Amino acid sequence: MKKVVMWALGALLVAACAGTKVEVTESGLLKSNFQTEVNGKKTDLYVLRNKNNMEVCVTNFGGRIVSVMVPDKDGNMRDVVLGFDSIQDYISQPSDFGASIGRYANRINQGRFTLDGVEYQLPHNNYGHCLHGGPKGFQYQVYDALQTSPQKLELTYLAKDGEEGFPGNITCRVFMELTDDNAIDIRYEAETDRPTVVNMTNHSYFNLDGDAASNADHLLTVDADYYTPVDSTFMTTGEIAPVEGTPMDFRTPTPVGLRISDYDFVQLKNGQGYDHNWVLNAKGDISRKAATLQSPKTGITLDVYTDEPGIQVYSGNFLDGTQTGKKGITYNQRASVCLETQHYPDSPNKPDWPSVVLRPGEKYNSHCIFKFSR
Rank of each mutant, 00 (worst) to 15 (best):
L208N: 07
V197P: 12
E191R: 14
G245C: 12
D185V: 01
V222G: 03
R194P: 04
A212Y: 12
T236C: 15
Y205S: 09
Y205E: 05
D223S: 13
I186N: 03
Y227M: 06
A241S: 14
V197R: 05
V197N: 08
M248A: 05
S204N: 12
D193T: 10
A183Y: 07
T196S: 14
N207M: 09
L208M: 04
H203R: 07
D231E: 02
T192C: 11
E189D: 11
M248N: 02
T233F: 04
P242E: 06
G210L: 04
D223V: 11
S204A: 14
I240Y: 04
E239D: 14
F250Y: 15
D231P: 06
T236E: 12
A216Q: 09
V222I: 15
H218K: 06
Y205G: 11
P229A: 04
P247Q: 05
T201H: 10
R187D: 13
F234M: 14
D225Y: 00
I184H: 01
H203C: 10
A212L: 11
Y188C: 03
E191P: 01
G238Q: 08
F250L: 08
N215D: 02
P247F: 07
Y188G: 07
I240L: 12
H203E: 10
E244K: 15
P195Q: 08
N215A: 14
L208K: 11
Y226D: 13
E244F: 15
D217Y: 00
A213V: 01
F206S: 09
T228V: 13
E191A: 12
A212W: 08
S232V: 03
S232H: 12
A216F: 06
T246I: 06
T228E: 07
A216M: 01
M235G: 05
R194M: 13
N199Y: 09
D249E: 08
G238H: 11
T221D: 01
E244P: 01
N199D: 13
S214C: 05
A183V: 11
T237I: 10
L208W: 02
I184T: 00
E244H: 15
T221H: 02
T196D: 01
G210W: 05
N207C: 10
D193I: 05
N215I: 03
E244W: 14
Y226P: 00
D217A: 12
H218P: 04
P247K: 08
D249Y: 09
N215T: 00
Y205W: 13
V198C: 10
A224E: 06
A241M: 10
F206K: 04
A224R: 11
D211N: 14
T192V: 07
I184R: 01
E189W: 06
N202L: 13
A216G: 01
S214L: 09
G245V: 08
S214V: 03
D249W: 10
S232I: 00
G245R: 08
G245S: 12
V230I: 15
N199L: 07
A183H: 03
S204Y: 00
